[in-house]
Amino acid sequence: MISAKPKKKFPFHIFVFLAPAVIIYSLFMVYPLLDSLRLSFFTELDGKEIFTGFSNYNRLLNDPNWKPRFWGAVKNNSIFFIIHMLVQNPLGLALAALISMKSVKGRDLYRAFFFLPSILSFVIVGFVWQLILSPLWGIGEGIMGFLKLGEYFKPWLGLEGSALIALSLISVWQFIGIPMMLLYAALIGIPDELIEAARIDGANNWKIFWGIKFPIILPTVGMVGILTFVGNFNAFDLIYTTQGALAGPNFSTDLMGTLFYRTFFGQQLQLGNPTMGATVAAMMFLIILVGVLLYMFGWQRRVTTYDL
């Protein structure tokens, strides 16, 4: 299949091709990740790091100071993820389906517009939405008033019950362009003949989409799902820029990322704790790994990939 036959001596040019990437990647990514993992088994005492086995993990999972914070972050993060799966990805799919229709004019423009928010930084997105939802500026209230919904306006970002949902939706607003783009690419990759054949058989657009297009793009849908998962369980910036590192109100928007940051760097009168920070990071790593494995063995193996 490949023209160059394996030689006895490892060919020098292969080394040249691979070495720079492998070295940088190993030094600045693999080594730090492994070292963080190592650090999570140590505790700092009088400026020295002492091996303490699983005691950091024990503390994180059982100590009354850490336990509620950790599980709270896991729970919030799960909600954050579920909202993305329920809102961002279906909506992204719907938009992709609409603009992939050949009859829709101006789709280049739409695509550019929908993708626009995802190229903005969290600093901008967080601040913009904080301003819009600020009861002081009254933009959000004004718009809802215009739609005769003024009485339903609430300071969502400040209420325990709604802050996390509001932030999840802001994040959806920002990133919807990415699933849209990926799904769009998959949709227009479907050969016209398949669709024409179905149309001749009398299928309408709805049926064609669910009967033919959707099964074909299912692997992409799965990929979008796992990318969302990894992204969500790694999220930090949006919460940090709008709610601060304490992820208020009352930790209701605390995600794994903010817990990690707070633990590692400390707060007002609390000093940072690198080894506990590494422990939180290791748990994030574990959660992401479990998710990825589930995806690879639970989903990817069962989904048929159509070779077009």
Binding site: G158, L159, E160, L246, P249, N250, Q267, Q268, L269, Q270
Partner: peptide, 24 residues
């Protein structure tokens, strides 16, 4: 008083806001 964990100052921030908000 803010030397240990949980950090009293951090706790104070959270509960003061809770009390004003009426959630505690």
């Amino acid at each position: 008083l803010s030397r240990g964990e949980p950090n009293l100052e951090n706790e104070l921030w959270a509960v003061s806001a809770n009390v004003i908000n009426g959630t505690q």
